[in-house]
Simulated scan of single mutants.
Amino acid sequence: MSKDDPKAHLSEAYTRMIERARTTAEDAGKRLELAVDEARDMAHELGELTRDEAELLAEYVKRDLQDLGAYLGSTGHDLRGWFVMDKTLVEARLFELMTSVADKTNLALAEFSRNLHEPAVWRTGEITGPGVLACLDCGKTLQLAKPGRIPPCPHCSATRFRRQHGLPSD
């Protein structure tokens, strides 16, 4: 763990949780939400995360997957538009993992996103996957190239964001 971020292990745990959820959903044909819950339990049972960390991280993963499902279901675009950045900026392993989730469980993602009643809000201190977040106060964007903790807005220090969607320019 680094001095700057005592919870830095959560960023890697985010990727592992998505990977385990995808594998469980594919292998056992389970709903993606249940697969995330199983990945949460496994992270705790293996001692990778405390129960509270696993619960919180599972909610972050579900939020991101729900938003991804809503985006794919409503636009028909590919995953690059959800990230709003060139895929070369996104960690290769995570891009492949998210693409795999999107390709193989597109229907599950669409079903999963139906539970989303209002647009999600991302907050400073939470963990999220790569992409672009727009500050709800000033509108400036924050680009995240890999899973990690959301910092305050670098422009106005606000703490609330929405995920920005759209295809990146090539």
Rank of each mutant, 00 (worst) to 15 (best):
T23N: 09
G81L: 05
I150H: 11
D52S: 09
L144G: 09
T141W: 05
T105V: 07
V121R: 10
L72W: 06
D78A: 03
L10A: 07
D41M: 05
L167Q: 09
L97S: 11
K146F: 14
P151W: 04
S113P: 02
L136D: 12
S100P: 05
A58Q: 03
L79S: 13
E53I: 03
E59A: 13
K140F: 01
T128R: 11
T88R: 15
V90D: 06
R160C: 03
S74W: 03
A158H: 11
R93W: 04
A134G: 07
S169A: 13
I127W: 11
L68V: 04
L72C: 09
R20K: 08
N106G: 13
E91L: 13
D5A: 07
H44R: 04
L49T: 06
A102W: 12
Y71D: 01
W122Y: 15
V90M: 09
T128E: 04
M42G: 04
Q164M: 06
Y14Q: 02
T15I: 10
T159Q: 12
E126D: 13
T50G: 11
L144R: 14
D37W: 06
L34M: 05
G148W: 04
V84L: 15
E91H: 14
T124N: 12
E118Q: 15
N115P: 01
E19C: 05
M98N: 11
M85G: 09
R22Y: 15
E33C: 03
D137F: 05
V84M: 11
R20I: 00
S74G: 03
E59V: 03
A158T: 02
R22E: 14
E126N: 03
S113G: 08
M42F: 12
L46V: 14
R31G: 12
D4Y: 08
A43S: 14
L10M: 06
R123P: 00
E45M: 07
I150M: 02
S157I: 00
L34V: 02
E12H: 12
L136A: 02
L34P: 00
P6N: 10
L133K: 07
T50P: 08
S74A: 09
A110D: 09
A120P: 07
G166A: 10
R163Q: 08
E38R: 07
L144Y: 04
P154G: 04
R20P: 00
P152I: 07
F83D: 10
S74V: 00
S11L: 05
A108M: 05
A54C: 02
D67V: 00
P151D: 01
S169P: 05
A102D: 12
S100T: 15
L34G: 03
E19R: 10
G139M: 01
D5C: 06
H9L: 00
R162V: 03
T99Q: 15
T128P: 01
C138I: 01
E111Y: 08
H117A: 10
